[in-house]
Design a protein around this nucleic acid. Sequence first.
DNA 1: AGGAGGATGTTGCAAATGCAACATAATTAA
DNA 2: TTAATTATGTTGCATTTGCAACATCCTCCT
Lengths: 221, 221
Amino acid sequence: MFEKYLDIILNTPLFDNLTQDDAKDLLSCMNAHSETFPKESFIFLAGNVPSGIGIMLTGKAKIIKEDIYGNLSVIDSLEAGDIFGEVFACAMIDEIPVTVEADTECEVLLMDYQKVITSCSTNCVFHSMLIKNMLKILAQKNMFLNNKNDILTSRTTREKIMKFLENMAAQRDQLSFDIPFDRQELADFLGLNRSAMTREMLKMKEDGLIDFNKNHFKLLN
Amino acid sequence: MFEKYLDIILNTPLFDNLTQDDAKDLLSCMNAHSETFPKESFIFLAGNVPSGIGIMLTGKAKIIKEDIYGNLSVIDSLEAGDIFGEVFACAMIDEIPVTVEADTECEVLLMDYQKVITSCSTNCVFHSMLIKNMLKILAQKNMFLNNKNDILTSRTTREKIMKFLENMAAQRDQLSFDIPFDRQELADFLGLNRSAMTREMLKMKEDGLIDFNKNHFKLLN
DNA sequence: AGGAGGATGTTGCAAATGCAACATAATTAA
DNA sequence: TTAATTATGTTGCATTTGCAACATCCTCCT
């Protein structure tokens, strides 16, 4: 049924440290099943009970949030291999706060949250690895969001840029590194205007704080 | 040993839905132990291996982060009943990125992460509740950070204030509500200057968007 | 090579914001 | 009650920032 997508599923962080055989056993013991959603249909609908955890197998989708006045905004996009819904399932809330809409026809692997976190009798060891993986996924997202928050709380453009670059440097453990964004993407990530950001970056270069060329940055001093 | 603090421990979200007896069993099966840290000592030290999950029993401490230039900043403060270290333990990273320093003498309950997430033979049911609670804690923190991020990414002061208030309204499910911050705290939370924020809030009142008095806010229109 | 399209850099200007300083109101302590 | 302290509101001003428009550079395609 979803056997042909086993590669995608196994490469998901949810199945880290599990062999193909273990994963197969787990999937069947969790009653995981794939479902096909036509273009523009809703994979999850805001207000519904969080049903479970999804893995995108084929197609593209987007996560949409509606504010109290009805304005829609796209929070994130999903493609093959992405996990979604795990936060809402694990948070045990009553209603999903977002809608997941299929941009193209999508095949999705759906797993029941209860089954994911409840060890069955035979597979306890593997199940416990699955749970460990889930904890890791949530915790890492947490650290990422904490870092981003820290950056965004800075008052000035310069401080935002600086914190972002320091973060990258810490991640790579080097004062010289490439960043994974172009200017516009970086500006969006930092909540800044592109030209204002560029202007400030150039000032920082003049001031001898940093050096950069295209995507390559260096922290000086 | 930590019996006198059982109330504090049980009121922690980690032990939600567990009776006092279950919790006692779990604590002993996890080899949980309390430790006393003198004032100004380090409960966790940045760079060390994340040893486990802590619960503050008495005293106050602060979580400190050091940037690559050695500048220190206080990320959070801890007091009785607060859980800490769970994100780093669950993320399975090599080095803790923060230091936890005791402001006063502190008693702390320490639990080994491996023991927390590994079901022992006798207590599986309770252990699985413990794990569910841990997932919930991480997932809820996640949702909170996502919301805050969404607010902070807004370009203008007005939009930040508006999103924050909409969030509060959604949480309370009412257009009229109290906020848990005074002006300075709110400004810090939103990454704004207090007077600039107040100025904008008053403009929003003039424009008929919101009404407020002290901590009480109302969304209009 | 020539040209199209995208990414990056540059600039002027209006508007938003931070900052500091002070005014007023509310709360707490004496 | 008065005084002290803290929270909130108010203002002028310098600076930062967003925005729009354009220049330059780079890459890729034919």
